[in-house]
Simulated scan of single mutants.
Amino acid sequence: VDYWDGSAWSDISDTDNTDTGASLAQTGTVTFTVPSDWATQALNGSALLYYIRARVTTVYTTNPVYDQGFIVDTQATDISGLAAGVDEEIALRYRRGPFYSPGSADASDPSLWPAPQQGTGTTLLAAPVLDSTSWLRTGAGAEKNILNWTNTHPTLQTKVYRDGGLIDTVAAGVTTYDDTAAVGETDEIYKLRHVGESNESPDSNELTQWTGPDLPPVLDTLVDGTLTYAAGWTNGDGSLKTEAWSSLNAAGYVLDGTENAGVTSTSRVPAGGVNNDSCDVKVRHKKTEFAVDDFSKYSNIRNTTLTDGA
């Protein structure tokens, strides 16, 4: 897509939402922010107007048909009132033909072309992309989940959702958010939406963040001894301590002990264990900061049967 800068056609930085491996491969929009040096021009005897042009350089068999131009934020199709020096995102919407062909009788008469199909709501806005999430403790009573994303419409605000509920709306251009109200040791599911004056984008992709140390250990082995068990695991975070928990005969879990950072095995005596007791074991990481203990998710569970060696 090119625009007239007062002396020549210049390439415009655009976002092509019709590209699925090739431009104009599907019905969609091409969006761009109004250039500061966009100038008027008269073409073929027209009045002085702001022109853009789109050129198709690849071979195609189905005609791309320009549908409509509109301001993304307001959905207005009349862009004559745009103020100089004010950023506005404009979309050019295309659809795939064949609505007419260059050789047909009606090709040269725009009045005979099909009317543009007015888009509404989420069809005109693309969702932001939620790139990553992470967790951080910042004080004795303070922790947060951190969201980072890529805006598809930098001139629009972004709504932030946790577990399906709206928690905040951030200003245009912002690409990160600190959720300081997240509850410790739970999975939180996040998604985003762009929002204009009268419509919203579809939901972004979802990411799940554990509010605590992110990477749990994996319990690899569990063998019984004489009323004991020996467990071996792979650390999710080798800088953290690891707790070993056991449950006898499907009763509640009891903490058997804690190993130092970097350790990957333990041998423990589950309290009250007797011969032929069924013993389930799981492990988790513990992180202590600001005199507060935070925990990862538990690992997978393994089972063994206690024996007395008789």
Results as ranks from 00 to 15, higher is better:
Ser7Gln: 10
Asp11Ile: 07
Ser13Lys: 10
Asp16Asn: 04
Ala22Phe: 11
Ser23Val: 03
Ala25Val: 03
Ala25Leu: 06
Gly28Ala: 01
Gly28Met: 00
Asn44Gly: 15
Gly45Glu: 11
Ser46Trp: 01
Leu48Met: 07
Val56Lys: 05
Thr58Ser: 10
Tyr60Gly: 07
Thr61Arg: 06
Asn63Pro: 10
Val65Thr: 14
Gly69Leu: 13
Gln75Met: 14
Ile79Tyr: 05
Ala83Trp: 00
Gly85Phe: 01
Val86Gln: 01
Ser101Cys: 12
Ala105Cys: 01
Asp106Ala: 13
Pro110Phe: 14
Ser111Trp: 09
Ser111His: 05
Pro114Glu: 08
Pro116Ser: 12
Gln117Cys: 11
Leu125Phe: 08
Pro128Phe: 00
Val129Gln: 03
Leu130Gln: 04
Ser132Gln: 04
Ile146Cys: 10
Asn148Asp: 09
Trp149Gly: 00
Asn151His: 01
Asn151Met: 01
Thr152Tyr: 08
Pro154Ser: 06
Thr155Ile: 08
Lys159Pro: 01
Gly165Gln: 12
Gly165Phe: 12
Thr169Asp: 08
Asp178Tyr: 12
Ala181Lys: 09
Asp187Glu: 06
Asp187His: 07
Tyr190Asp: 06
His194Glu: 04
Gly196Arg: 03
Ser198Gln: 11
Ser198Cys: 07
Asp203Leu: 01
Glu206Gln: 15
Gln209Gly: 00
Pro213Asn: 09
Asp214Glu: 13
Asp214Ile: 09
Leu215Trp: 05
Ala230Gly: 13
Ala231Gln: 02
Trp233Val: 03
Thr234Tyr: 08
Gly236Pro: 09
Gly236Lys: 02
Ser239Ile: 06
Leu240Cys: 08
Gly252Ser: 15
Gly262Lys: 03
Val263Leu: 11
Thr264Arg: 04
Thr266Trp: 10
Pro270Asn: 04
Gly273Arg: 03
Ser278Tyr: 08
Asp280Gln: 09
Val281Met: 07
Thr288Leu: 04
Phe290His: 12
Val292Met: 05
Lys297Asn: 10
Thr304Pro: 09
